[in-house]
Write a protein that binds this DNA or RNA. Structure first.
Lengths: 197, 197
DNA sequence: CTTTTTCATTAAACATGTTTAATAAATAAA
DNA sequence: TTTATTTATTAAACATGTTTAATGAAAAAG
């Protein structure tokens, strides 16, 4: 760590703090890079040099809390319960988390959802981890004889994830869609698809 | 139709033709409103006045062909086949259609997917129609005793649609994901979820 | 210690979607 | 026919994300 690196890291933190504050309060669409720069006491160019673009800054600014929340959800799993209960437990933590500032997370997901994975690698990794976690759950259920053993675990996990994303989309784009409704909807959908239609 | 309305409609068509041409050839992200305006021989402001914003122009420019394609798919259904075969028939037409210019449709869907429904009402209507169509298929299968009669048809249809969207997302964001692979993946996913996991 | 090189920072410029205010021509009113 | 009003159009301005070129200070080389 040279003196230069220190100062660079300091600038980075200044930007991140201002970004978190303004993104949270005004929403990413309603605050400009110039606003954040002014609040942080740096130039707009500096923000782009540090983070490449506004969306990447948003991702870095929000990533840590999302990951922490997911971590907490995984650490507080209901033991010896089935796949569905475990998934619903996680969703029951994630959706209220997003609900604390739905517009904020809507913009984050909107701006990364259809972009190449390498543009938002940490978010993509989070999703991939989640899917992998579902895979292990499915494999457990297979071993206990609850699920057919001939199914492709990763495919099954991916598609359960797609069902979650479908509900999440409605949740994020429709402010009237309440957390409890979303959770309930997903629960019913999981029922449907675990038992077969 | 007054003379004013005629000229307005003419301007609209000029804009739409130029937009279709440039969107298709350069991609929506790589051609500006000014480019389209110049090609159409109108002012950039005129485009915004006519279509409200660039994304809305994109939607209007592409809607008709999408709807036509979906219509053709529905008109050429394999008769007396099950839900899965019918869905795969439709997907086998839609994905090759998007594949003719994947980047173009990727941008369209990216820019509307998480926006309020009223921002892209015709696309939303298309989706809703598709879901309703699946509902009727499910109800048929129920009558024939192939599906459990206690399931919520609309919920089941929605979730099948979510599975499609999950695959579509991968298809659009990953240029290496080939049509045949996507179709195959979705087929396997449908197997999984119709039979139960 | 001096010189050279690296690099964090930024002012200014640029690209582009959109808004605003003005204009002129078509339509409606008199 | 004359006057008033509506409205399609646009030039100019604006907002904002991003790029470029310049600068100065820190680090490395001599």
């Amino acid at each position: 760590m040279t003196r230069r690196d220190d100062s660079k890291a300091e600038t980075r933190e200044l930007i991140l703090n201002s970004a978190r504050s303004l993104f949270w309060e005004k929403g990413p669409d309603k605050c400009s890079v110039r606003d954040i720069a002014k609040e942080a006491g740096v130039s707009p160019a500096s923000i782009i040099v540090h983070f490449k673009n506004k969306t990447a800054l948003l991702e870095v600014a929000l990533y840590e809390e999302i990951e922490k929340t997911l971590g907490k959800a995984l650490a507080s799993l209901p033991s010896d319960q089935g796949l569905q209960a475990v998934l619903m437990h996680i969703v029951s933590i994630i959706l209220p988390f997003y609900d604390k500032n739905r517009e904020l997370y809507r913009v984050l997901i909107r701006d990364t959802f259809f972009e190449p994975i390498q543009e938002s690698p940490s978010l993509a990794q989070l999703d991939e981890n989640f899917i992998q976690f579902i895979v292990t759950l499915i494999n457990q259920e297979k071993k206990m004889g609850n699920f057919r053993s001939d199914i492709d675990s990763h495919l099954a996990a991916s598609s359960l994830f797609y069902l979650y994303l479908g509900v999440l989309r409605n949740f994020l784009r429709n402010p009237n869609f309440r957390v409890a409704e979303a959770v309930d909807t997903l629960s019913k959908i999981l029922n449907l698809h675990l038992a077969g239609i």
